[in-house]
């Protein structure tokens, strides 16, 4: 595998919550993404997925840890020096309606990053805008319209065209298909997959939809309370989830096929508050296989035989497995 585009080490982000209390949104995250690779990040609401995506792009300042992008440490880099780097790192947001200026024409929206980051003559830029629109399967007829005249799927295509306009090395996609209908979703995923292969851009795909993530990702990281509890190749992680939380998450997922039997292990209770994180393993309050030691000891990351890395005390003693996949 080639040199990673992005390497994140020990990244933390906390927000003040009044007094001397803090919301610990992201806790000691390590991850890396190589060129042409798609890393899927899954987790429930409040798990810190979106915050992590924003901190990685320095849209939000990290509290601790380091972010290395394309060989440069950007953790403490002054804003003014990060700006030119934005050409190489782009983002697509969940809600295309609020991500696009409603008063601008589609042509100008797609042209905006070109104007900011590339020196192009007017005709060169127009050519490029049209090529980008073609690339995202958007008819040229829409270029002179405003966002209000386009459907959600079309607007998300515009957002993608904006993100790929400057040929970035990293694109962070925060729930890009969550607001779209199933019928439109498949097309957007297919487009992203093509773009990733053609441009060799690294994608960080943030989503809570396990089916979608499985479809598009090479590797998957599972987030719980701001911590990566398990990380590994997509297929291995889906076939043999090793962290009890991953197991519970996957078992709660309902495949759209009545013939696939699901072996449900519904988690009790709710996610603890990120203001008062549980001691020891953060998952011990809901974990079905927790032992006394899980309350006090912070688990190390272990590699399991199927290749994933998981943060669970019970991996060495084999007590981490309570969910076995059943096939009908």
């Amino acid at each position: 595998m080639s040199q990673p585009v992005l390497t994140v080490r020990g990244l933390c982000k906390r927000f003040p919550a009044g007094g001397d209390r803090f919301v610990n949104a992201v806790n000691h995250v390590d991850l890396s993404i190589a060129r042409g690779e798609t890393l899927g990040m899954v987790g429930e609401s409040g798990s810190g997925k979106s915050t992590l995506g924003r901190v990685i792009l320095r849209l939000s300042e990290p509290t601790r840890g380091s972010i290395e992008f394309d060989g440069q440490d950007i953790t403490k880099m002054p804003k003014g020096r990060v700006r030119p780097l934005r050409r190489d790192m782009q983002m697509v947001f969940q809600d295309p309606w609020s991500a696009l200026n409603p008063r601008m024409r589609i042509r100008d929206l797609i042209g905006e990053p070109l104007k900011l980051h590339m020196r192009l003559s007017r005709s060169e830029r127009d050519d490029r805008i049209e090529a980008l629109a073609r690339r995202v399967n958007l008819s040229n007829a829409y270029l002179n319209r405003t966002p209000a005249n386009l459907s959600g799927g079309q607007l998300q295509r515009v957002c993608i065209a904006r993100a790929i306009a400057t040929e970035p090395k990293l694109i962070v996609l925060d729930e890009p298909t969550s607001s779209l209908d199933l019928s439109v979703r498949a097309g957007i995923l297919e487009l992203l997959n093509e773009i990733c292969r053609e441009s060799r851009a690294a994608l960080l795909f943030i989503s809570h939809d396990l089916g979608t993530v499985r479809m598009i990702s090479d590797r998957i990281a599972v987030l719980y309370l701001g911590e990566v509890v398990e990380q590994g190749r997509a297929e291995a992680l889906f076939e043999n989830p090793s962290h009890p939380y991953t197991q519970a998450l996957l078992s709660a997922h309902l495949p759209a096929d009545p013939m696939v039997k699901v072996n449900r292990h519904v988690l009790e209770g709710e996610v603890p508050s990120p203001i008062a994180l549980p001691s020891g393993c953060k998952f011990h309050t809901r974990c079905p296989v927790a032992i006394d030691r899980c309350r006090s000891d912070v688990p190390e990351v272990h590699q399991v035989p199927t290749g994933q890395h998981a943060r669970c005390l019970r991996i060495p003693d084999g007590g981490n497995i309570y969910h076995r996949k059943q096939t009908a």
Partner: peptide
């Protein structure tokens, strides 16, 4: 789910992550 008889149902079911394969021709949208 086993035998979708209407083209719309058929494409809807084929667009789910379980059935969808990247690069296949889609009929929905």
């Amino acid at each position: 789910f086993a035998e979708p008889a209407h083209p719309y149902t058929r494409s809807l079911i084929n667009a789910t992550p379980e059935r969808f394969r990247m690069g296949e021709k889609r009929t929905l949208g």
